[in-house]
Design a protein around this nucleic acid. Sequence first.
DNA 1: AATACAGACAACCGCCACTAA
DNA 2: ATTAGTGGCGGTTGTCTGTAT
Length: 355
Amino acid sequence: MGRAPCCDKSGLKKGPWTPEEDHILIDYIQKNGYGNWRTLPKNAGLQRCGKSCRLRWTNYLRPDIKRGRFSFEEEETIIQLHSMLGNRWSAIAARLPGRTDNEIKNYWNTHIRKKLLRMGIDPVTHTPRLDLLHLSAILNSSSQMNFSRLVGMHNLVNPQLLRLANLLSSTQFQNQNQYLMLQNNAQDNQICSNSQLQNHMPPLVQPCQPQNQDIPTCTTLETPNVPISNIDQFRTSDVTNFNPQNCQLNDWPNNQIDVTFFPEDYVPLSNYGYDCVYGSDPPPSDTSTFQSNGSSNFSFRSVLSNMSSPSSSPTQLHSNSIKLTSNSTEEEKESYCSNLLKFNIQDMLDVNEFV
DNA sequence: AATACAGACAACCGCCACTAA
DNA sequence: ATTAGTGGCGGTTGTCTGTAT
């Protein structure tokens, strides 16, 4: 035999709380505390479910709640914590005094998430957009489907997108090692569970197993000869029968890519194309060819660690030449954030095209 | 001025781990 | 040992408000 039901749901009020109800709830809790939410509404004389009372109190009426806009420092903290903890809003809220999990969750979904997307960053993984990465996986999907076959896709997909995707694809195999290393570190430090960690790493190369329903599988592209000018069109195309095996072009020897495939001003990137404001390696001097076998020194890990490592922030974040305060304007803050997480690839193409 | 649309956020829903009975 | 309620959490929805047309 279990406990009695928490409340009889019939006849209980739902929807927005009135000031009178708030007053009753505050009064009651100030006098009696909030030990038992089941009996609280009845004792207080509220026609509400105990759960509703608890939510109203913890998310809105609690005296220690800080109302108003999030400061830039708070926003920065949320991003860092989210990169470590994922959508564990209560855990994030525990590190932001005066803020509730609900408030942080709302702020993330309405502000931060969109901001990261605008910057070309996947708000779930805190790495460059998953759709771009997945496209890179498509391109890298098998030994038979190497980079040279992109030429056959030129009229199907935005060439710039292909270039970006290939750029990212070159990092995939390296990421596997980094993932394993980070996983071990996470286990050692007990930062987060493996499943959480996986959510923060770029996908391993798993062709034909999309990580996200929105993302086409590798055997897609049914609408040949239809230029796809941006990623949204690509994603919404009816693409089911494309078979890379049917590509007619020969492979380039030694997996070396003709430099003419890249923009004239292209320079191989360090740090996976992230232009971290601190610690990025200088570009290699030889830019005549580009190795597509993942031998370049790009590193998403640097991004992840820069965003997630408590030691890297806020000190280093604040080391930027632009000093922001709580009074900084929204534009200043956004500009500052954009610089923090700027892609080098933005130098060679406009990522916003794909957002 | 009216309408449509988007953004913001409060509140609800459903699930899960814990635990009282 | 089992059952079922409680509290907590994350995801989603509903409503209000501001802005654009």
